[in-house]
Design a protein around this nucleic acid. Structure first.
Length: 402
DNA sequence: CCTCCACAGGAAGCGCAGGAGT
DNA sequence: ACTCCTGCGCTTCCTGTGGAGG
């Protein structure tokens, strides 16, 4: 992803970007403003390993986009660089537990990193474990970073295995750094796991608008050509992101999209207007992503709504006024039933269908009001919250219709 | 006014998967 | 490894509600 394709330069020729990779969500920034304190704290803790002592295990908590992963990776990189320069036996391993979500998978990944030439798939857990202990026993200090640690199914087992190994080794040691954005999960842990993993704890607070602006400014300096981004555009992007939970990742994403908007327009400046457009784009991406991760049955209901609201673009007379794209709960259910049967899916009861409607409304995908006068009986009037054509198109792919 | 309509949404219960307890 | 329990997704049944129509 980071490798330079020969088309990168060609593609970027008439662009506001100089290096758009710097705005990728996977990019680890070299400098981490407003995290000096955390960096100092982590390096203080992990610095023990440089004296060939096992350091305290560390648990890091903070919401998404607060720099947990970047900061930790940054410190780890420096730790490993320093130690190899000084010929000290410290090694670091980073694992994202979303991809290695069990004790066995995580251990495999660790051992594979230690012995890059070996292939350990299919070996017994005990063998893998011995391999790991054997490696450390040679007098190494191993720091293992478990990112998104709450994703590990049998975390208690994994932590137990990793910490127990220290009792079997007298020369080296294993230090565990756990990262999570879910503080609640800590309380679900076995008390022993909790006390060993959380020997040291740190919280990463969200960034405020000024901090986000500074972060964006520094990224923009390297990612864009000189003087492309207007200062007020940076402020606006920072303000948008700050109000949406202070997440640096979405702030950077906003900037990236704003640059793309400018490129498409063929202009050389990024102003407030591009940022606003980008915000809409990012929101749309979020919506479409949300729609595609919905359970199948809810997708079917939503699909029925999108079909109907396109079909009867019909303006309806309600409360004397004309309203567009408003549907009755009942006719949606009928349509949903028809579609589901046609493509051979189960049909849920009308009662449960109403629960789906409530959920879709909570997600903001649809809007609904109770029927007033002008309509017989009592029903819900339902309206799609977003562009019906886009949603229908996406769901046709998702549900493999047509 | 009463009745019917077209639903809303609460209560109870059922079958199942997965975790806890032993 | 075995049962037991629990939560979840869902159905069935039911009562409530407000306007339309006679």
């Amino acid at each position: 992803m980071l490798s330079q394709n020969i088309f990168d330069k060609e593609f970027d020729r008439d662009s506001v970007f100089t290096d758009r990779n710097l705005l990728s969500p996977h990019y680890t920034p070299l400098e981490l403003p407003f995290r000096e304190h955390q960096i100092k704290q982590i390096s203080h803790i992990l610095g023990q390993t440089l004296h060939n002592k096992k350091s305290d295990n560390l648990f890091i908590y903070g919401k998404t986009g607060t720099g947990k992963t970047s900061t930790t990776k940054n410190v780890m990189k420096q730790l490993v660089e320093f130690s190899s320069a000084k010929n000290i036996k410290v090694e670091g391993i980073y694992i994202n537990c979303r991809n290695h979500n069990s004790k066995y998978r995580a251990l495999i990944k660790i051992v594979k990193d230690l012995y890059p030439e070996g292939n350990f798939m299919g070996f017994s857990a005990a063998f893998i474990y011995e391999k790991l202990v054997g490696y450390v026993r040679a007098g190494k200090q191993l720091v293992i970073v478990l990112d998104e640690v709450d994703k590990v199914k049998d975390l208690d087992e994994l932590i137990y295995a990793l910490t127990r190994s220290n009792d079997e080794i007298d020369k080296g040691g294993i230090t565990v750094v756990g990262i999570s954005n879910n503080l609640m999960f800590k309380d679900r842990l076995d008390p022993r796991t909790k006390s060993s993993l959380c020997e040291q704890e740190m919280v990463f607070p969200p960034y405020n608008a000024e901090e986000l602006k500074e972060i964006l400014k520094r990224r923009a300096e390297h990612a864009f050509k000189k003087d492309v981004v207007e200062d007020s555009a940076l402020s606006l992007a920072a303000a948008f992101a700050a109000q949406e939970s202070g997440d640096a990742r979405t702030a950077v994403m906003l900037l990236l999209r704003a640059g793309e908007v400018a490129d498409r327009k063929g202009i050389e400046k990024i102003t407030d207007e591009e940022v606003k457009k980008a915000k809409n784009k990012v929101e749309e991406e979020l919506i479409l992503n949300m729609v595609s991760t919905l359970p199948e049955q809810q997708q079917l209901v939503l699909y029925a709504i999108s079909v109907l609201s396109l079909e009867k673009r019909g303006i309806r007379k309600i409360t004397g006024q004309l309203e567009e794209g408003v549907l009755f709960s009942g006719e949606i259910y009928d349509e949903y039933e028809r579609i589901a049967k046609k493509i051979g899916k189960d049909v849920v009861s009308a009662r449960w269908y109403r629960e789906y409607i409530s959920e879709l409304e909570m997600y903001g995908l649809i809007l609904s009001t109770n029927s007033g006068k002008g309509i017989k009986g009592q029903t819900r009037l339902i309206k799609l919250g977003f562009d019906a054509r886009k949603i229908r198109q996406l769901l046709e792919k998702e549900l493999m219709i047509g």
